Amino acid sequence: MIKDKDNATLEDVLQPGTHMIAAGYCMYGSSCTLVLSTGNGVNGFTLDPSLGEFILTHPNIKIPNKGKIYSVNEGNARNWDAPTAKYVERCKFPQDGSSPKSLRYIGRSVSVFQLFV
Rank of each mutant, 00 (worst) to 15 (best):
M1Y: 09
M1D: 14
M1F: 12
K3S: 12
K3T: 12
K5V: 14
K5G: 06
D6H: 12
D6Q: 12
T9Q: 13
T9V: 13
L10N: 03
L10V: 13
L10W: 06
L10H: 03
D12Y: 06
L14I: 10
G17M: 12
T18N: 09
M20E: 12
I21P: 01
I21L: 06
A22S: 12
A22R: 01
A22Q: 05
A22W: 01
A23K: 09
A23V: 09
Y25V: 00
Y25E: 01
C26P: 00
C26E: 05
C26W: 00
C26K: 01
C26D: 00
M27L: 06
M27H: 00
Y28K: 10
Y28P: 00
G29H: 01
S31R: 09
C32F: 00
C32N: 04
T33S: 01
T33P: 00
L34W: 01
L34F: 06
V35D: 01
G39S: 08
N40Q: 12
G41V: 04
G41K: 04
G41R: 02
G41W: 02
N43A: 12
N43P: 02
F45P: 01
L47V: 02
D48I: 05
D48M: 09
D48W: 08
D48E: 14
S50P: 05
L51M: 14
L51C: 04
G52H: 10
E53M: 15
E53L: 15
E53P: 02
F54H: 08
I55K: 14
L56S: 07
T57R: 13
T57N: 11
T57D: 09
P59Q: 09
N60C: 10
N60L: 05
N60K: 15
I61T: 08
I61Q: 13
K62Y: 07
I63S: 12
P64F: 07
P64T: 10
P64E: 15
K66P: 00
G67W: 08
K68C: 02
I69W: 11
S71I: 03
S71Y: 03
N73S: 08
N73F: 04
N73K: 08
E74Y: 03
E74R: 10
E74V: 05
E74Q: 11
A77D: 12
A77T: 07
R78Q: 15
D81W: 03
D81G: 13
A82G: 08
A85G: 14
A85S: 15
V88S: 09
E89I: 00
E89C: 02
R90I: 03
C91W: 02
K92V: 05
Q95Y: 08
Q95C: 09
Q95W: 04
G97E: 11
G97A: 11
S98P: 12
S98W: 07
K101A: 07
K101W: 05
S102E: 14
S102T: 08
S102K: 11
S102F: 02
S102A: 06
L103W: 03
R104L: 05
R104A: 02
I106G: 04
I106Q: 10
I106Y: 01
G107K: 14
F113K: 02
Q114D: 14
F116V: 08
V117A: 15
V117H: 13
